[in-house]
Design a protein around this nucleic acid. Structure first.
Lengths: 143, 143
DNA sequence: AGAATAAAAGACCTTTATATCTTTTATTTA
DNA sequence: TAAATAAAAGATATAAAGGTCTTTTATTCT
């Protein structure tokens, strides 16, 4: 459902939400080691997220990434949209452009139920909220 | 969720369930034209489905593909399993091997609800049943 | 100012998914 | 039995996803 890149991105953002801090940003190397994501690829993803204002970057010695107050407020779906787009939530489960509620494909309704359940969750939950859930329960982010 | 190949495969099988017949099998060319699937690729997919006993093939002039009584009884999930495998229904939404109900990832439960809804549908519905639904309502199979 | 640090940018490489082309095999029918 | 038809098989091509490497830019600290 989510691409590998998007899974990496979500874990990265949530990790920063839990661990990072304006006063002590996390470096790419640190993130990639902890989450077991390839280092160079982690860098690329961090760059992309920073450019789209999902995370905040600090250059130079002691630099790295953290989530600003604003960053923490963004719903999970924003991360997904930036990396994968929203086509999963909007298009037919059988790949039919003609599929619609008037002229549905054979799995239209069941696919819709599944995808809208997820969409609702991703829209309604902010990075901060999900990060808090991770801390409260002991959810895992590690492979 | 489903690969392009798997979407093609499902549409192909359902088309054969509706249109094909032991007495007049449908040729690959006919199928690819009707469903707007690339011709050579349709052939490859048909081969794979035939080898795994999801559909039945007839060689030579007037030959083609159709669904036997047995073929019609197979649940939809069998088609998916042969083309894509079942990893979507079995693995973590964030790609974590350590994710489990005891130590879940942050989206574990919501992802589980969505994926199990679909899995249940695909397990419980046979090709024949779904084909009948397509005929009764006027569901589309065409791009 | 200069050295060190770490992100930004862009070119490049590898693997997998998607798709095509060509040759072979099986079957039918004239 | 030969010609025609259509699937089977296998090699090959193309595009997208996943991932790496090198150079540049910004910042900090001595």
């Amino acid at each position: 459902m989510l691409s590998q890149k998007c899974k990496y991105a979500l874990r990265t953002v949530l990790f920063l939400a839990i661990e990072g801090d304006k006063s002590c940003p996390k470096g790419g190397k640190d993130i990639s080691t902890t989450l077991k994501i390839p280092e160079a690829y982690t860098g690329k993803i961090l760059q992309e997220l920073a450019k789209k204002n999902i995370i905040t970057s600090v250059k130079g010695p002691g630099g790295g990434f953290y989530l600003s107050e604003d960053n923490l407020k963004s719903p999970i779906i924003n991360v997904i949209e930036i990396i994968d787009g929203l086509s999963f939530f909007e298009s037919c489960g059988l790949g039919l452009s003609k599929c619609s509620s008037e002229h549905p494909c054979p799995i239209h309704n069941d696919f819709k139920i599944a995808r809208e359940h997820l969409k609702k969750v991703f829209i309604n939950k902010t990075v901060l909220e999900l990060a808090n859930e991770i801390k409260t329960n002991d959810f895992t982010l590690v492979r």
